[in-house]
Design a protein around this nucleic acid. Sequence first.
DNA 1: ATTGACAGTTCTAAAATAGAACCTTAAAGC
DNA 2: GCTTTAAGGTTCTATTTTAGAACTGTCAAT
Lengths: 169, 169
Amino acid sequence: MKWDTLEEEPCSLARTVAVIGDRWSLLILRECFLRKRRFEAFQSSLGITRHLLAERLKKLVRFGVLRRIPYQESPKRYEYILTQKGLDLYPIIMSIVHWGNVHMVDSRGRPMLHQHKNCGHMFDPVMVCSECGEPLTAKAVHVHPGPGARQTSPTHAMAEDDPKAKTGS
Amino acid sequence: MKWDTLEEEPCSLARTVAVIGDRWSLLILRECFLRKRRFEAFQSSLGITRHLLAERLKKLVRFGVLRRIPYQESPKRYEYILTQKGLDLYPIIMSIVHWGNVHMVDSRGRPMLHQHKNCGHMFDPVMVCSECGEPLTAKAVHVHPGPGARQTSPTHAMAEDDPKAKTGS
DNA sequence: ATTGACAGTTCTAAAATAGAACCTTAAAGC
DNA sequence: GCTTTAAGGTTCTATTTTAGAACTGTCAAT
């Protein structure tokens, strides 16, 4: 499987992974959420090579996660800010951080703490059901094929099936 | 930066990314949450090369996300099941799927729908504050250094500062 | 006139991944 | 008894990605 086929898979996880599913993209996004915006700032705080940073920023702009906007003329300089699509990645970032807080910290404890401005408390993120508000667990969720699912065995009208559709999975 | 230094970074996101921050690990975990357990099942549904699948499974076992248990003797055969540490990845997987549902679906709609067994409804995952229960947004969160934070500017004893230490972040 | 900041681009070497073939154990079919 | 099939890998070469360092271009400040 190649990387550009990934974003066309009939799977929302695969398509998202095509955008953020590499080490550097997630680290760059961490910096974005910590209010970093500029090439040099990303490069020096991450230690990423300039080559790869340039490429990842282009990719994130291409996918609409970041926007590249000039912050000065002559010489023209740009900074990268999160779009709404990018801001919507926050639950992913926070759930990743939270898992690390629970399972990957050493004896010194958490590197970072989060305070909710709304209520003033230090908090952890919790994922709940949009309908009943209860915390979610894998066992309590049933998965159904949706309208965009790959057709594995249509009951009829096989003939007009998409010839590009892959079998299996 | 090399991959094995990532898991020692004083950052919960970096350490988690060291475990799941590549394309295949996340796709393998998707299959795990869809109740796939066996080498051949992973391989045929993902199209991953056998070589890489073996390596990724070893890595996930090494990090305690999966456990390799025999399901028959002679010939000895193993299957891979999620540990509690692995099950705790569910919010990450679900937030990734949800972002894809919102931002990456085509005109056909969502490939998969989720039903909450507890309340019976089709739902979306929502990330809320553990203390007040309100949905979280990046702007409403303030970040503080925690006990495991990297020391960026000790008040004294500057002289014995680690010369390799990066500034910022 | 030289230095430095910023935002990249361009090279070569090293590492990771793809793709295919091969190995081992043991049961099933002929 | 011999061959095929299944499961769960391992081994090999070719291609792609990434690392690491140097270089470019524009302008401001010294």
